[in-house]
Design a protein around this nucleic acid. Structure first.
Length: 275
DNA sequence: GACAACCTGACC
DNA sequence: GGTCAGGTTGTC
């Protein structure tokens, strides 16, 4: 579910709550949610102080004083929420909660994920470095300049522009919402071949992505279905111009917005004003 | 490139 | 009952 603005919001909220706190206990209720070594998950986390929580693209990273980290990818419906520590695997858990973290505070932290697509991973300092190399994540979409943005797009010679933007090794953090919104704002078609994109277009698209991502971060992300950060909705959905609006008139030219499919993802664009 | 897989819930 | 969903990965 979360794209970059949502990951930034969650990481910011978690950082305010947890930095300096020590993980006293960990429970996992649904084994497949742990994608790193399952036996090592608890031992790598228990006793560790959380130095900070931040994001890498759509990933949420809990930096530990070991130099290692816990990484969370929330996929479609992952969330962090607070609630009373369940005490044991058979204790009282919130609906769809799959892992719990006790910081010795009034409220424990839960990872909840209705569709169970998300994954948690715990790493030592060495293990983290190896995983990050393997992950090969591009720079955060809100933390690169226009020329670097253009140069990184050029690394992919083939494909449609939208597919390249969704490739997390090119730039990290774009998902279906902010991709469609940015392409609309820049008046560029998501179907445009990457090989045709000019430096000017890339610069325009970069400027619009920065504006949109920053505004979405200010509004704590888009709550379309289930996304929340620590139980709180984002409000950027009120600013969406095209996402989820197929058939409605284009806000610029009134032509009905068209729904298509790119790389298996529903795409909404204006065929009249996005070229 | 299209499609299935991973899952559950919302909506028609 | 069928379709769709802020994602990613792995098949034909």
């Amino acid at each position: 579910m979360p794209e970059l603005p949502e990951a930034v919001t969650m990481a910011t909220d978690l950082n305010a709550l947890l930095s300096g706190q020590t993980i006293e206990d960990v429970l996992v209720n649904y084994d497949p949610i742990v994608a790193s070594d399952k036996l090592a998950f608890g031992p790598l986390l228990i006793g560790q102080k959380v130095d900070s929580v931040n994001n890498m693209g759509k990933w949420v990273r809990f930096c530990l004083n070991s130099g290692g980290a816990m990484l969370a990818h929330l996929k479609m419906t992952g969330q962090f929420i607070l609630g009373p520590w369940p005490g044991s695997k058979t204790g009282t858990w919130p609906a769809h909660a799959h892992a719990a973290f006790n910081f010795g505070q009034k409220e424990a932290l839960f990872y909840r994920d209705t569709r169970k697509f998300g994954r948690l991973r715990a790493f030592s300092d060495v293990g983290l470095k190896e995983f990050l190399l393997e992950l090969d994540l591009g720079p955060d979409a809100n933390k690169l300049g226009p020329e670097e943005f253009f140069q990184r797009l050029l690394r992919k010679p083939k494909g449609k522009l939208k597919q390249i933007l969704l490739d997390q090794s090119v730039v990290a953090g774009f998902g279906n919402i902010y991709c469609d919104e940015a392409l609309f704002a820049a008046s560029i078609s998501p179907h445009r071949s990457i090989s045709e994109i000019t430096r000017d277009q890339a610069y325009t698209l970069h400027a619009e992505t920065q504006r949109i991502l920053n505004e979405a971060i200010l509004l704590k992300g888009s709550t379309v279905r289930s996304y929340q950060s620590l139980g709180e909705d984002g409000t950027y959905q009120s600013q969406h111009k095209v996402y989820g609006k197929a058939g409605q008139p284009c806000p610029r030219c009134q032509t009905p917005l068209v729904r298509s499919s790119i790389g298996g993802r529903t795409t909404v664009s204006c065929i009249n004003c996005q070229k």
